[in-house]
Each structure stands twice: as structure tokens, then as C-alpha cells.
Write a protein that binds this DNA or RNA. Structure first.
Lengths: 185, 185
DNA sequence: GATATACCGTCCGACACAGACGGTCCGTGT
DNA sequence: ACACGGACCGTCTGTGTCGGACGGTATATC
């Protein structure tokens, strides 16, 4: 039982197991895909490594199946649910970070018109997917996921408006050029 | 000259050096702080490691001072500026990711009222800082940083509105309870 | 019972992160 | 001139994260 540092990844695993009571890494993967993965992604391999790490440190119990696949089922220990609770109880003053590769490119000189087009073509379907999720919600269960989803929708809408504005700025220039073109003839 | 994988970190270094012509890691750190670091942070140590890595792979030239501090000055090579250009030229369809620790906590059951308070107390000053940056802008230079800053402002405003709404939801419940209280007496 | 396909688990090399540690420079006081 | 404090600057290390290759296991179909 060595002591480890609890990272956001750790709390995702702890939080998911708190809801699911117990799960295999594979099930955790599926849970992430349909929930928190929409705004905080992690690679599949992490969801095999992290529970093992947490189990070694006493935050999870680990039980291995004897069948062919020999998969491991994890569940919260008292220590694990204490850690989760004290994490959620403590408000955080950390900044959100918008890691957006397309913004990085624009910052360093990408053609913002082309980028806007590309991003809008991925963001609009994303918004549709989120809205569908919201529509399917039954209103039962904890508020957290619902509130989070709504904030996610807000931000996608903001991104869409931003790219539309940027696309508009560029095409204004084009239109201006076209309007002025006759004078040049 | 080994070949390496170019990551977002790499392009930040390349992009910064494209603007600055040449810089030491320390200067890169300062540049990040006042520019791209506002939406894509990297630790100080990365900005020492990454240029060295890029130099080894031929993307940067490296020249070590002979004085006491023996610091290294880096500049783009032809290979480096080619790499940067072909990166910016290619629009990306990747999703932006909003890595927000506070949202993660809310998702897993944090008290959203308390979280809203905490986040608003950090986001409002952040917004003020961004708006100040925008006000100071002279309108000269490339569009990228300006557009990026505006998008950043949009998102901070969205976050603020979201937390205000969430705080409002909670207090609605409280108010409802208070309104109904007389009937209970 | 052979084959296709989806399901599931592990491993590895490269990259990112935080922060401790220590050296260098410069301003100020004596 | 010299000492000293604080700002400036660079490196190193252990741990965490990443993406993806690889390979094994169950299930459906014929």
C-alpha cells in the first residue's frame, strides 16, 4: 500500500465507481465515453492503468475473475469514497483551460476562414449530439451530469458563434473587394 | 538528427520563434505567459526541454553563449519554418476540449452553489484582465492573437453566465423554500 | 467446426508535468 | 571594494499521460 498522488484521472475513476458500485476497466471505458469523456477525455489505456494504481494504494478493491478473460472488477473502499467526498466538497479556484488545436493554429497565423469552415463542420454535429443527449434526459438522477452537459452546450454554441463571426469578418473583406472591383475595371 | 513527433508544444515553440526570430528558453517562457499561455498552458520546464529536442531534430538552430549563464539561443531553421507553415496551412477537425476541474467536481456531485461562488471569484478578474488586454491592442500586427483573445473572452463570459445561472437555480430552491415557509408555520 | 467480427486486456516508447534545487546577476548599503 | 538579498535563470528527476500496436477471447453466422 504505497501512497500516490490523486490526479483528475484518479477522481474520474473514483467518481464513476461511486455511481456504478463496481466495474471492470472496460466498463469504465464505456462509462467515460457516454459521460465525462465529452469534456475530459482520457485514453483507453489509462482506464486500465489507473484503477490498478488506485487499488495498490488502497482506494479500490480488486477482484480478478477466474474465467478465460480473467478481467478485474474494481470497487470503492472506504478510503476511496472518503477521498472522493473530500475532493468534491472542496471548491476549486483553478482556471478552466480551453485546449483547442484550431485556436492554436489561428493564433500562429492559420487562415481563419478555412479554419472556421473546418471547425463549424465538426462543431455543429457535436452540438446536435449534445442536444439530443439533453432531450433524452429524464430529469432523474443527480444534477451534476445535467448541469455539466448544459455548460458544455453553452460552450459549443459560443464556439460556433465565434467561428461564424470570424468567417463573416473574412468574407466582409472579400465582399468589399468585390464591390470595389467595378471601379477597377 | 533523429526524427521526433511534433506536438502542440512543439508548434508553440516554433510559432513563437517565428515571431521573435530568436530567443532563449527564458524569453520563450515570458512570451508564453503574455500570449498563448492564456489558453494553452505549459510548464516552465517544458520550454527548456522542447527547444533542445527540436534542435536535435533539426528544426531549430542552437547557439550557446560563452558567458557565465551559458544560456542557449534558438532560432528557426528552414526545416523548422517549413514544419510550422505546413501545420498552420492544414485546417484541423479536432475537437476543442474544455478541461475544467470545477466542472469535473460538479459532474461528480460537488455542491454547485459553492462551486459557482468560487469560480465566479476567479473568472471575473480573468475576464477583466482579458478585456484590458483587448483594450490595449493597437490593431497592428497579425490577426491571430486578436481573434484568439476575443474567442477566449467569449468563453470566459459563457462560463460566467453559466455559473450565474447555476447559482440562481440553487437560490431559487432556497427562495421557494422560504416562500413556502409561512404555510408551514 | 471454420471463419468473421466484435469484444477485451496489456504493454511500450515517447511526451508532459510539477516542483525542487542550485547557480548567476544586479542593486543597495556599508 | 565588498557583502548580501532578491530577482533572474537553468537543469534534473520522478511520476503521470498519451496513443497505438499487438494479441487474446467470446459470439454470431454459415
Amino acid at each position: 500500500m504505497q501512497d500516490i498522488q490523486l490526479t483528475p484521472t484518479s477522481y474520474i475513476v473514483l467518481g464513476l465507481l461511486d455511481r456504478a458500485r463496481e466495474a471492470t476497466p472496460y466498463e469504465l471505458n464505456r462509462l467515460v465515453d457516454i459521460s465525462v469523456g465529452n469534456f475530459w477525455s482520457l485514453p483507453r489505456s489509462q482506464l486500465y492503468a489507473e484503477p490498478a494504481r488506485l487499488a495498490r494504494a488502497g482506494y479500490l478493491s480488486e477482484e480478478q475473475e477466474q474465467s478465460g478473460r480473467r478481467r478485474k472488477r474494481y470497487a470503492l473502499t472506504a478510503r476511496g469514497s472518503d477521498a472522493l467526498r473530500s475532493w468534491t466538497e472542496e471548491p476549486t479556484y483553478e482556471y478552466p483551460e480551453l485546449r483547442d488545436p484550431s485556436l492554436l493554429k489561428v493564433f500562429f497565423g492559420a487562415d481563419s476562414q478555412a479554419m472556421a469552415e473546418a471547425q463549424l463542420s465538426t462543431l455543429r454535429p457535436l452540438l446536435a449530439r449534445f442536444e439530443e443527449m439533453r432531450a433524452k434526459d429524464t430529469g432523474e438522477g443527480p444534477d451534476g451530469p445535467r448541469q455539466t452537459l448544459q455548460v458544455g452546450i453553452d460552450h459549443v454554441e459560443t464556439s460556433i458563434r465565434a467561428w461564424e463571426r470570424i468567417a463573416g469578418e473574412s468574407s466582409d473583406i472579400v465582399e468589399t473587394a468585390i464591390e470595389q472591383a467595378p471601379a477597377l475595371l
